[in-house]
Deep mutational scan, measured.
Amino acid sequence: MNLTVNGKPSTVDGAESLNVTELLSALKVAQAEYVTVELNGEVLEREAFDATTVKDGDAVEFLY
């Protein structure tokens, strides 16, 4: 899956889609429990991480 992460191209191997929690784990995001996630310009509530799917071509920003 090809994404733009914090403005840079990134690839997650072996996945066509992941939820936000899985993406944080796959990318080994440090202190993931404290990060705010913006997906395609929309800031996500932490409670929505498990239910929100990240797909090929999406833009993700991790805000600390």
Rank of each mutant, 00 (worst) to 15 (best):
S25V: 15
T21F: 07
T11Q: 11
N2I: 12
A32T: 13
Y64P: 09
N40S: 01
K28T: 06
G7H: 05
K55G: 06
L27H: 03
Y64R: 05
V20W: 03
M1H: 04
E42G: 06
T52E: 03
V29C: 10
A51K: 14
V43P: 09
E38Y: 15
A30I: 12
E61N: 15
A48T: 10
G57L: 02
L3V: 09
Q31T: 09
N40F: 01
L3H: 04
E38L: 15
K55P: 01
L39A: 00
A48Y: 12
N19P: 04
A59F: 14
G57V: 02
T36I: 13
V37P: 02
D50I: 06
F62C: 05
N40L: 01
A15K: 13
K55A: 07
V54F: 04
A59S: 14
V5L: 07
N40M: 02
L23D: 01
E47R: 06
G7V: 01
T4P: 00
V54G: 01
S25I: 15
V29D: 03
V29T: 05
L39V: 06
F49Q: 02
D50R: 05
F49K: 00
A48F: 12
V20S: 03
S17G: 09
D13W: 15
L39Y: 04
N6C: 11
S17W: 10
F62I: 15
D56I: 04
A51F: 14
V43F: 08
T11F: 15
Y34A: 09
L63Y: 15
V60K: 00
V54I: 10
V12P: 03
V54M: 04
G7S: 04
L24G: 00
Y64N: 09
V43K: 11
V20L: 07
V5F: 03
F62T: 04
T36E: 07
T11R: 15
A26F: 14
N19D: 03
G57N: 06
Y64W: 13
Y64T: 09
T4G: 04
A48M: 13
T4D: 04
E38S: 15
A26R: 07
T52D: 02
D50F: 06
V5D: 01
L23S: 01
L63R: 13
L63K: 14
E42H: 13
V5K: 00
V5A: 04
R46D: 04
V20Q: 00
N19M: 05
D58L: 02
A59G: 05
Y64L: 10
V12N: 02
L3P: 02
K8S: 08
T53K: 11
A59H: 14
E61M: 11
G57R: 04
E45N: 12
E22L: 07
Y64F: 10
V35R: 00
L18I: 10
V54D: 00
E61A: 11
G14R: 08
N6F: 03
D58F: 02
V60E: 02
S17Q: 11
E45I: 09
V54N: 01
S10T: 15
V37Q: 02
V43Y: 08
A32K: 10
A26H: 11
A51I: 14
Q31Y: 14
K28N: 13
V20T: 01
T53W: 15
A51S: 14
E47M: 06
V5N: 02
A30E: 13
V12K: 01
L39S: 02
D58Q: 00
K55F: 10
T4S: 08
N19H: 04
V60G: 00
V29F: 07
Y64V: 11
S17P: 08
N40Q: 00
A48K: 12
Y34S: 10
V12G: 01
A30Y: 12
K8I: 13
L63S: 15
G7K: 05
E45P: 12
V35W: 07
V35H: 04
M1Y: 05
L39P: 00
N19W: 04
L27D: 02
T36K: 09
N40K: 01
V5W: 03
K55Y: 10
V20P: 00
L27M: 07
F49V: 02
A30H: 12
L3I: 14
A30T: 12
E33F: 09
V60N: 01
V5I: 14
A26W: 14
P9T: 07
Y34E: 08
A48L: 12
A32G: 09
L18Y: 07
E42T: 12
S10N: 09
L24S: 02
E16S: 14
D56P: 08
A15Q: 09
F49P: 01
A15M: 11
R46W: 07
D50E: 10
V60Y: 05
K8L: 11
G57A: 04
T36R: 10
L44M: 04
L44D: 02
A59T: 14
E45L: 13
A15P: 10
E61C: 12
L18H: 03
E16I: 14
Q31L: 14
T11D: 05
V35Y: 08
L63Q: 12
M1K: 02
D13N: 13
L44S: 01
N40R: 02
D13E: 14
V43T: 10
V54H: 03
L18R: 04
L23P: 03
T21D: 05
L63D: 08
E16L: 14
G7T: 02
L23H: 01
K8Y: 11
E22Q: 13
L23G: 01
A15I: 12
L27T: 01
K55D: 03
T4I: 13
L18G: 02
M1N: 01
F49T: 01
Y64H: 10
K55R: 12
L18N: 01
A48D: 11
